[in-house]
Design a protein around this nucleic acid. Structure first.
Lengths: 205, 205
DNA sequence: GTCTATATTTGGATAGAC
DNA sequence: GTCTATCCAAATATAGAC
């Protein structure tokens, strides 16, 4: 095993390009990041970039690819089990969201998402499908199970999910913006928990 | 009166530049909009642009200027009066938000805001101050008054405002993105109303 | 795989004629 | 105020030597 994994070590230039690009795209967006700047940060010439990627667009799409990969770790069985715990389900979900918000890598990715949201249709679709629909689905299942067990008041699970998710997104947005300007986020650091508390008070039976 | 207002009619080129720029900036962002493209859309040469504006930056700042002007029309007296009506206050607020969402001009402005949110510190600050804080202030006053009059359950008015506002923002974001791709928003058109309904159920005494 | 050199395009901005 | 012509810088991309 370790033989095979080591065979292709070095140069690793391609990985380095990807890593650097990730950082630059997330900071300056697509248009604001030049191949020149990428090459310079990697420590090679622009022309050398084209040995690894066909063009700038290809680099960006590779960067964007894992932008939406696996945010939450719920499988079907887990949702039912977790939802039976009521508030703890919401808390777990919110804490996973909080973790992403403050995670260096995901923070970068979230910035790319925001920058490209209005400039790239693929990104918009991924946002709707992976970011929104996927989370709404998980939450709806959870709320539906809670309603069946009269842990919470009866209502439309989709609406309830929408309400719960939208605030999480907004908190994340605010925190991301503030951290971008190195503004302290201590005043918002407990906002996720407050959201769960408020929301549970709003829906519990 | 009509004499004075007519004196400077035509060419109106400067206004046309502004109008075209607004559309282009909102669609392609600052970097994605070239002076060439602006001039071409206006129907003049690039050089002619510089008879009206010093440079591209000046055009953009002019466009950005009225981005945050007067979203909501509440004065202090009105808030108290309106808040006493409970749910109607929230409904009025949400409907004003809905109006902005579907208004052509404000839709353009909102797109510029999103595009520049991560690329322009001034925009971020304006977003926090004008967009967020201002609305939180109005809502907090409203909720506080409702609590005093036991129209709603007792809670932190700031948190409550945050919860109410964040969903409005998220709905607006989604609708804006969908309209950008000419996707029908009928499924979301009543989301504002549903939000008010759900929220009122969550807080009413 | 990386380099130098270069082709090509695009974009911001100015000079001077009309 | 607008035009043509032009300049300059930056950026994408390619060719060919090492």
């Amino acid at each position: 095993m370790s033989d095979n994994t080591m065979v292709h070590k070095r140069t690793g230039t391609k990985e380095k390009i990807l890593k650097v690009s990730k950082a630059l795209f997330s900071e300056y967006g697509y248009k604001g990041t030049s191949v020149r700047k990428i090459a310079s940060n990697v420590g090679i010439r622009e022309s050398a970039i084209y040995n690894h990627y066909m063009n700038k667009e290809e680099i960006f799409l590779e960067v964007a690819k894992d932008m939406f990969s696996s945010p939450f770790s719920f499988n079907d069985g887990e949702i039912r089990e977790s939802a039976m715990k009521g508030k703890a389900f919401l808390h777990k979900f919110a804490m996973q969201y909080k973790l992403l918000t403050f995670d260096k890598y995901n923070e970068s990715m979230f910035r790319i998402l925001l920058i490209e949201l209005l400039q790239n249709k693929d990104i918009r679709e991924q946002f709707m499908n992976e970011f929104h629909n996927k989370n709404i689905k998980v939450l709806s299942e959870g709320f539906f199970i809670m309603m069946q067990n009269t842990l919470i008041r009866s209502s439309d699970p989709m609406i309830m999910s929408y309400e719960f998710l939208s605030t999480l997104f907004y908190i994340r947005l605010q925190i991301t913006l503030m951290r971008y300007d190195s503004i302290s986020t201590t005043s918002l650091s407990t906002q996720f928990e407050k959201h769960v508390d408020f929301f549970w008070e709003s829906i519990k039976s």
